[in-house]
C-alpha cells in the first residue's frame, strides 16, 4: 500500500472544490481496467448455438461527499455517527438529514460513538458473494452501536460460530492502521470482554453440524 502526498495547486475560485492531498493505492495484483473486451466464444456441436465471452471491467469512484467523515473516521479507528439537533435521534450508519418528517430534513451533526454494541440479530453464513467465499463461515450480526437507533451489519470474530446469541455485548475492533482502507471492513465485532459463551445446546449442535462441511469446502480453494 503506497501513500502519495500531492502538492497544493491553485484552487478554482467560482465553486468550492475539494483538493485531494492524500491518495493511497491498494489495487490487488492483476486488477486492470480493460474496458469492453471479447475474450472467447463457443459453438454447439450442431452449429446452432453460439455463446460469446465478454470481459468488462471498470474503475468506479465512490464519492462519499457529505458521508466522508464516517469513512475517513474508519481510517482513524473511530466510529462516527450523526445526530439530529432537533429530535436527538442518532444513527450508525449515518444520515446527513433527519428521518423524522417533523424535523423537515434537518441537517444532522457528527458525534463520535463509543466502540460498544449489542447483537440485535445474527446468522452464520456458509455461502457468500465471490469476494467473500474464502472467509467462510462468516458470523454476520446486526449490531446496535451504543446510542444508535439503528443496527449496522458486520462480522463477529473471536467466537465459535455456534456460540453467537441475541443481545450479547460486543466491542468494536479495528484492523491495524496500515491495513485500513476506509471501508466498514476496517472493523469487526468481537464479544465484549465480560461475555462468556453459554453451554452447548440442541441449536448450537445443529449449527455446528451444518457448518462442518463449510470448513472442509473452504479448505479446497484456500
Amino acid at each position: 500500500m503506497s501513500k502519495i502526498l500531492l502538492k497544493k495547486k491553485d484552487r478554482e475560485k467560482k465553486v468550492e472544490k475539494p483538493f485531494f492531498t492524500e491518495r493511497k493505492e491498494y489495487r490487488p495484483e492483476g486488477v486492470k481496467e480493460t474496458g469492453l473486451a471479447l475474450v472467447g466464444h463457443e459453438i454447439s456441436e450442431d452449429g446452432y448455438v453460439m455463446n460469446q465471452f465478454l470481459h468488462y471491467d471498470q474503475l468506479y469512484t465512490i464519492r462519499h461527499g457529505w458521508n466522508s467523515r464516517f469513512f475517513k473516521g474508519l481510517l482513524e479507528g473511530k466510529i462516527w455517527g450523526t445526530r439530529c439537533p432537533k429530535c436527538g435521534d442518532t444513527w450508525v450508519p449515518v444520515r446527513t438529514h433527519c428521518w423524522n418528517l417533523d424535523c423537515n430534513l434537518q441537517k444532522t451533526e457528527w458525534v463520535e460513538m463509543p466502540l460498544k454494541a449489542k447483537v440485535h440479530t445474527w446468522t452464520v453464513a456458509g455461502w457468500s458473494g465471490r469476494s467473500s467465499l474464502k472467509r467462510l463461515p462468516i458470523v454476520l450480526v446486526y449490531g446496535v452501536v451504543e446510542g444508535s437507533k439503528v443496527a449496522i451489519a458486520n462480522e463477529l470474530h473471536g467466537i465459535d460460530p455456534w456460540d453467537v446469541e441475541f443481545d450479547m455485548p460486543l466491542k468494536i475492533v479495528f484492523k491495524p492502521e496500515e491495513e485500513r482502507v476506509g471501508a466498514v471492513t476496517d472493523f469487526h465485532f468481537e464479544p465484549a470482554d465480560s461475555w462468556e459463551p453459554s453451554p452447548m445446546n440442541e441449536e448450537k449442535e445443529r449449527i455446528k453440524h451444518l457448518i462442518e462441511p463449510v470448513y472442509d469446502w473452504v479448505k479446497t480453494f484456500k
Binding site: 462519499h64 450508519p93 455461502w127 457468500s128 458473494g129 454476520l140 451489519a153 471492513t185
Partner: peptide, 11 residues
C-alpha cells in the same frame, strides 16, 4: 457502502 462489503449477500 455498508452491507455488501461485510460478506453480505441477500440470503
Amino acid at each position: 457502502r455498508y452491507e455488501l462489503m461485510v460478506g453480505g449477500i441477500y440470503p
